[in-house]
Amino acid sequence: MTEVFFYIFAATVIAGGLGVVLLRNIVYSALTLIASLMGVAGIYILLSVEFLALVQVLIYGGAVMVLILFALMLTRTRELKDNLDGDQKPLAAVAALALLGSFIAAITQTTWPRDVNQITTVPFNDIGNALFERWAVPFEIASGVLLVALVGAIIIAMQEEGER
């Protein structure tokens, strides 16, 4: 049963990813991106990291997608419907295949510290403890970087408003 679900989720991820690249309508691309990200969340559940799966839904399905959709819908997306394909399609395919090959090579060549066929469940509390005790300083630095980005975005937006 789990295997069936894995294939369903994997197919969703791949089909969604292809949809993002191949569909002509950019809003549909955003929709298939949502499907793809939800598929990733499903695979997280199969790997028994429910916390990551839910955060994936909350952050990518919620916050990130609203940004993308806002940007797409507030700009004139309907006018660039036809011009999304370039002449560099074969080059892109080569680059994508090279990336795929390097990923596969990296996954198969690496010696993993634990037995990969066994799923080790990580309790939710351990993630929290690791984040806030063991790795508290990197966590704080990351949040500081985000804060700077936030303030920067506000300042840039304010300047643009004043220029008008």
């Binding site: 949502i34 916390f51 839910l54 839904v57 399905g61 919620g62 959709l69 819908m73």
Partner: peptide, 25 residues
């Protein structure tokens, strides 16, 4: 019985805005 049920509820209920944006667009 989901062990992370509160997070689940908040995550899932946050998805509906995609529908609102799509309906509007």
């Amino acid at each position: 019985a989901i062990p992370l049920s509160l997070l689940y509820i908040l995550a899932v209920s946050g998805l509906s805005f995609i529908g609102f944006l799509l309906a509007g667009w």
